[in-house]
């Protein structure tokens, strides 16, 4: 099949449709609005539901109702809107409901700004709402991956009865690339017995609420669930096995980091890259193959180097971990190489 040229956000939207998603509710905010615009007409074509809600709060809670009724339900947001989504994400987790929520990250705190950013890492990976939870987070690095991840996201959400987050960013969302789209599939809303549909006489009514109220084994159930989710670690290694310095980067930053690896290798400097595809569970296992690594450096579009702590944990603090963070601008490959060399020199002394 011929490739199609699509914008990242539109590819996410079309891939959701093809993964059987027939319900979307959300609110406009840059840089994710193309998802909303695309689904406003595309849902009609496939007989699905699109609702532009009065706020992200209404959007995420409407999604919760749709998910409880058995649909493959989606919402998307960015920055301040994604913060408003947190209320509903916490409730989805509490009620064991599958759903997919996209965060097309923008830069900065508060209102921030609309340029690409990776400052939501902590919010995405630590359970951004109230309470005691985490969610699987998938981080696409290309428009093609936007297409490929959507069905995976719904499958994982249903496998664990747990919301799954997709961490895109303004650059991946706004760029256009050629993509192979997956086949169109339908989802049966009666696939799961727990989905509300009306209670037949003599049956026990279905209750969608905090599972704390309904599961005597609540604590063990959740510990087992999170332990099982840890097996979903996904990553891409790029010349990491023999590298002296290993970069760690996801999303748009990982593409610059890969370029830096190529530049470094061309001049004989053994640089490598681990690209987390799941931000949570963090791909700890990826670091086992970095037999030669003297130092690690994350490349991120944020000021505090949010992912560096996870790398320190993954390598158990056996090697130095630093970060190269940018704000507003993308990281530069030559700066990455320069900083990586400086780290190695410092280790050699």
């Amino acid at each position: 099949m011929a490739k199609e040229l699509m914008k990242g956000n539109e590819a996410l939207a079309e891939a959701a449709i093809r993964a059987g998603c027939r319900f979307y509710s959300g609110y406009p905010i840059t840089p994710q609005t193309e998802i909303l615009e695309y689904l406003s007409w595309r849902m009609d074509e496939v007989g699905g539901t699109f609702v532009q809600t009065e706020s992200e709060l209404a959007g995420i809670n409407m999604l919760l109702g749709a998910a409880a009724a058995g649909a493959r339900a989606l919402t998307s947001s960015a920055g301040p809107g994604f913060s408003l989504n947190q209320e509903g994400i916490s409730y989805l987790v509490a009620a064991d409901l599958p759903a997919v929520i996209i965060d097309v990250m923008r830069i900065g705190t508060g209102l921030g700004d609309i340029a690409q950013g990776q400052g939501d890492y902590w919010q995405l990976t630590r359970g951004g709402g109230h309470g005691d939870y985490r969610t699987i987070v998938l981080a696409p690095a290309s428009v093609q991956e936007n297409c490929d991840m959507m069905e995976t996201a719904f499958d994982l959400a249903e496998k664990y009865r747990h919301p799954v987050l997709i961490a895109s960013d303004a650059a991946i969302g706004q760029m256009a690339e050629g993509v192979n789209l997956p086949e169109l599939r339908e989802h049966n809303i009666d696939s799961f017995d727990w989905a509300v549909r009306g209670c037949r006489h003599g049956d026990a009514p279905r209750k969608i609420q905090n599972t704390y109220y309904t599961r005597p084994d609540y604590v063990e159930y959740l510990r087992d669930k999170y332990a099982a989710m840890d097996s979903e670690q996904r990553w891409e290694s790029y010349m990491a096995d023999d590298a002296d310095v290993v970069l760690v980067a996801y999303g748009i930053s990982s593409r610059v980091a890969k370029e830096a690896v190529n530049e470094a290798r061309a001049e004989g400097f053994r640089l490598g890259l681990i690209r987390p595809i799941t931000l949570w569970p963090f791909p700890n296992r990826a670091f086992e193959e970095c037999k030669n690594a003297k130092a690690y450096m994350t490349v991120e579009i944020n000021i505090l180097g949010q992912m560096a702590d996870d790398v320190r944990l993954a390598v158990r603090d056996t090697r130095p971990v630093d970060f190269y963070g940018t704000f507003f601008g993308l990281p530069e490959s030559d700066v990455i190489v320069e900083k990586a060399k400086a780290m190695l020199e410092k280790e050699g002394k």
Binding site: L57, N61, M62, L64, G65, G88, K207, N210
Partner: peptide, 14 residues
């Protein structure tokens, strides 16, 4: 009845 306990004030969108 099949019932959902919604977040406070979000019953209608749910």
């Amino acid at each position: 009845f099949d019932t959902i306990m919604a977040a406070h004030g979000r019953d209608i969108p749910t």
